[in-house]
Design a protein around this nucleic acid. Structure first.
Lengths: 187, 187
DNA sequence: AGAAATAGGTAGATCGGTCTACATAGTTGT
DNA sequence: ACAACTATGTAGACCGATCTACCTATTTCT
């Protein structure tokens, strides 16, 4: 594994487990088994590494979602695939101790105007957009009702993830999935 | 205003705006207009101050909720009072720049086993408990349906707060309140 | 008088970031 | 074939700044 990948992997683990601010450069390079200069040969700064971490988590989730999507046959299953991808991502984090959505946790530490928060916001908007598209396949005639339902599902999912992070397990996420099913039933 | 209150007020502003880890004690004492030693005369450590900050935010929210509750006449209005108290708390934060739920943001920075995370989790459980009690007044006969609806509302509310924090305004919270009304209609 | 708060400094660690000196491996020129 | 060059990485010292926490001597308030 190349140096840059080792750095990203080590940073991802430590940023998620201990937080961005609490993780020092030395801890990252030590865990990656890499010289400190190698970090600055691959990233211009710690902030740059943080941005790469956020982008990496987004890509990681998208891959999990696409995998779920490929096995979904109905629009309803495609809606639930978003929930399942969140559960899958939570399962990935179990080995380091589940602490909720890494993107939301990182955003909580980032300053208001920065690119990191914007990336996290974009991921949440994308999840809502996926809901909206699949819901439109279920009820093509509905207009703003679909938009509201997509927002509803997004809030439900993100709230369950926040609660799950506090609890340290994904039970809330699975309950939210059940609630989502009953929402789809009433749609 | 006494020294301890000035410290708590300054800490609350800086912890919320910049995050817990990024805020040094010098910044807190400077903003409070207080000597550095006064901090350690009133709090045993920064971690102790952080715990007091979390407790203070919880109390602050509870007061806003009780104020809303005192003007609610029906169980349905008491359910919505929880949403309104969140909107009220968000409005308090506008002068420093709204960044979402201060408790969730703080929890994102706190280690897993500590008392801070437990306090935050307890606040979220309390909000869900309030939902559950008021819902039970609406539908006393229902059993697990009420529990599920309370969880549903909790996830909806927390998710909307998370999204609102990323957006920097409380529009999502107000949309979640509308969705909550339609949930109550279908109950 | 006595308690509480003040200003300011100190200790010791850690932070992000830079720098030098050296090792290794692959490529190039002759 | 063999030396020279380049790219990449390592180990570790080093920088100024900042961090938490504690200490002392002085002033303020009741």
């Amino acid at each position: 594994m190349k140096v840059r990948e080792r750095l990203l992997k080590a940073a991802a683990e430590l940023f998620y487990r201990d937080g961005v601010g609490a993780t020092g450069i030395d801890a990252i390079t030590a865990r990656a088994g890499v010289a400190k200069m190698s970090l600055y040969n691959n990233f211009s700064s710690k902030a740059d590494l943080v941005d790469a971490y956020i982008q990496g988590r987004h890509d990681e989730w998208m891959e999990l979602y696409r995998e779920r999507l490929s096995h979904a046959t109905t629009p309803r299953e495609r809606v639930l695939a978003v929930f399942d991808s969140y559960v899958d991502h939570a399962a990935c984090a179990y080995e380091w101790g589940f602490r909720g959505c890494g993107l939301l946790n990182a955003a909580a530490e980032l300053p208001m105007g920065g690119p990191g928060r914007a990336s996290v916001a974009a991921q949440k908007e994308e999840a809502e957009r996926l809901f909206r598209e699949h819901l439109r396949d279920i009820r093509p005639s509905a207009g703003t009702a679909v938009d509201e339902a997509a927002e509803h599902l997004s809030f439900l999912l993100e709230g369950a993830m926040a609660r799950a992070g506090l609890d340290g397990h994904d039970a809330s996420l699975k309950k939210a999935r059940k609630i989502a099913i009953s929402i789809l039933d009433k749609l």
